[in-house]
Design a protein around this nucleic acid. Sequence first.
RNA 1: GGAGCCAUCGCCAAGUUGGUAAGGCCGUAGAUUGCAAAUCUGCUAUUCACCAGUUCGAGUCUGGUUGGCUCCUCCA
Length: 465
Amino acid sequence: MYIYDSIQKTKCHFEPIRANEASLYVCGPTVYDNAHLGHARSSLAFDLLSRSLEAHGYRVTMAKNFTDIDDKIIKKVEQTGQTMEEITDFYIDRYLKEMALLGVKRATIEPKATQSLHAIEEMIQTLLDKDIAYLISSGDVYFDTSKDASYGSISHRVSDEESQSRVAHTSQKRNPKDFALWKACKGSEDICFDTAFSSGRPGWHIECSAMIEKHFEAKDGYSIDIHGGGADLLFPHHENEAAQSRCSTGHEVAKYWMHNGFVQIDGEKMSKSLGNSFFLKDALEIYDAEVLRYYLNSVHYRNDFNFSEVELQTSKKRLDKLYRLKKRISPTSASSANKVFKKALLDAMGDDLNISIALAKIDEMVALGNDGLDSNPKDKALKKELYANIEMIDTLLGFGGREPFSYFQIGVDEQLKAQIETLLEERNEAKKAKDFVRSDAIRDRLHTLGVAIMDTPNGTVWEKS
RNA sequence: GGAGCCAUCGCCAAGUUGGUAAGGCCGUAGAUUGCAAAUCUGCUAUUCACCAGUUCGAGUCUGGUUGGCUCCUCCA
């Protein structure tokens, strides 16, 4: 299996630090607000990675954290009067539910910053003991970037002069690039945790380093195989994380780094600061979750993704075709997937998750399947193989797993269903009587109800259009 | 100001070591159908933003130009 490493900037053959195992850590959300499509894409991208690794025979251990202590959360506590836990529990719960709807598998480990404070304190203390970190009078602890010779190796950032930096300098910092490991409490209302060095809370970067150390055992100079996250985290977050880990543990945190591209709206990055967020909860109200999954995963994970309603509908059409085939072969059971097809899918996904090739192979498989059924509608062996193919797609890519008849009847209640059935019966009678004016009128009527019908040798079937 | 990414058919989008442009949507012709829909088949980029170079040969490599995006500040 090949993956693209953002540090080496090249596609690499994946060689895990432990044979047949793959350890993954993905930066999760800061839980102070609803998840948007960007969070979904990142989640979906690494879900695809995890599934692909498993399909290629690796036992995957994936950790995805929740940042549940942060300035923005504290601000929300002040604004709403709710406790920090009330806020973070609410958004974590919602995040997990929404990701579940999108078919994202749960991570093996889901650590929270507030549950990792001991590990965080230990790591900071180690860095203080080594004089790589330093405490200033306010109680803040900073990381001395000049002590890490490899600082900059992640983002390939040349150490430009401070004049270029847009960061406001704290006078007590040794170097402009030094970053906070620990932020001391500012007032009585602040949410603080006591440590040997000061009462305060962790900086943003330290939690990931500490959690990885806590949950993974290093081997051959690396703590984990793959570290993932959004492309915006490459600097400073991952640079700083790598530095902290390297300096406190003496080995590198990750062997490979993978970063997903952004979801854009009208060609611009979707972000809270731009105010152009498309929240998942809203998207899930108007679009089918499975279609959304297919769509968000239909563009290679490293490319930026410009959200478009038209393209989402195109994705739906492609998914519909898969389900029409599934409907056509139902009911049946799975034998084993077509070997050529299976290999093609695995090869595509094994090539740094080349989803475009994978989807093309699926379209091809569907066309071939329909063709086969056109010439021999009762080919049971073919039906079973096709069913196995679709099951395989569901396992590897996370779509196609639903019961096909209900897929085409999303949002149709029992009353409408009964009405449709009655109209179809009337139309059949009209057809038998060769009263095509009447049968076409009924078809138009169904069309206005948002129902498309198809006459097949086995009778008339309908879909919600 | 510094660093980086990207530019392929009307739209979306593949394209490891350079070797003669996947796939989907749309459109179109046909098979099928009472007509449709669904399904199948055919057609649909001499060309990869532009200019120059390397090469027998470049979408793929080098240099430049133009345009778009991202990071350097919280961010998936």
